[in-house]
Write a protein that binds this DNA or RNA. Structure first.
Lengths: 129, 129
DNA sequence: CCTAGACATCGACGCCTGTCGATGTCTAGG
DNA sequence: CCTAGACATCGACAGGCGTCGATGTCTAGG
């Protein structure tokens, strides 16, 4: 864990690893078209998508981006979601580790902000298969 | 269940429902920027993303799209993935119900093909928050 | 130093999900 | 009709995940 997906998120649209190494072991695939995604690439993209595949976390990203100044503290997010403070902190940590949010402590409060272009990077990667 | 997400998938990028109805119940939100995503919209998008947030299913989509003719049967996909036939059929059903694949029976075999533009629709919706 | 408040972490509970073997269903071919 | 094969479905199991209350940690202010 511990926020290793941030690098992965940046590397994803750049198509780092070699592709098409695990498909068509038999002789049925003529490989006329393009190659398939790598097993490791699929695992990394799935990990990033899994962080977003939750209604609460999608609303969190949206609410933070729509909030004043593009940032919000936990106390601003607990009441609209109708969830407890530990639950909101848990979801924020998942988004933080996935590289979608940043955390800034100012005084007693912790302000979360959306990483610019992180959603677009995932969307671009998703469109390439 | 039973493939209701197909309509949702098409409706998602069209921004059908009303937005910004559930955010900022208190008085802390000045609503200077745009409104947040709806609770129902987040639930639908999360359901579609959850179907993609799996390494095996991402590889399935990629392998089917890269296969000859843009379609593949179950027997072509079992061996490269190293999974049992029921498991592969299970993942294909998840992608089918989410609206990413179509199934066509020809003789004994069932051919799965990628729905054109389905991935791009999700990517476009994801980029809009 | 002590209190109050915001947030993170922990432990526990119930639910969902990925996986498999076993079995059912359907088609092609004798 | 009967067999063989491809695929779907079922039941069961282990592991992961979302949620909460309780507790720990840190900062601001007396």
């Amino acid at each position: 864990m511990s926020r290793v997906a941030v690098v992965t998120l940046v590397d994803l649209p750049l198509t780092s690893g070699p592709r098409g190494a695990a498909c068509c072991i038999g002789d049925s695939c003529a490989s006329i078209t393009r190659a398939a995604v790598t097993e490791a690439g699929a695992r990394d993209l799935a990990a990033v998508l899994k962080a977003l595949a939750d209604p609460v976390r999608l609303r969190l990203v949206s609410m933070i981006a729509a909030h004043e100044g593009g940032e919000a503290c936990v106390c601003d997010l607990t009441e609209p979601l109708g969830l407890s403070q530990p639950t909101v902190s848990h979801h924020l940590k998942v988004l933080l580790d996935a590289g979608f949010l940043t955390r800034t402590r100012r005084g007693t409060w912790a302000y979360y902000a959306l990483v610019p272009g992180s959603l677009d990077a995932v969307a671009a990667t998703l469109a390439t298969v």
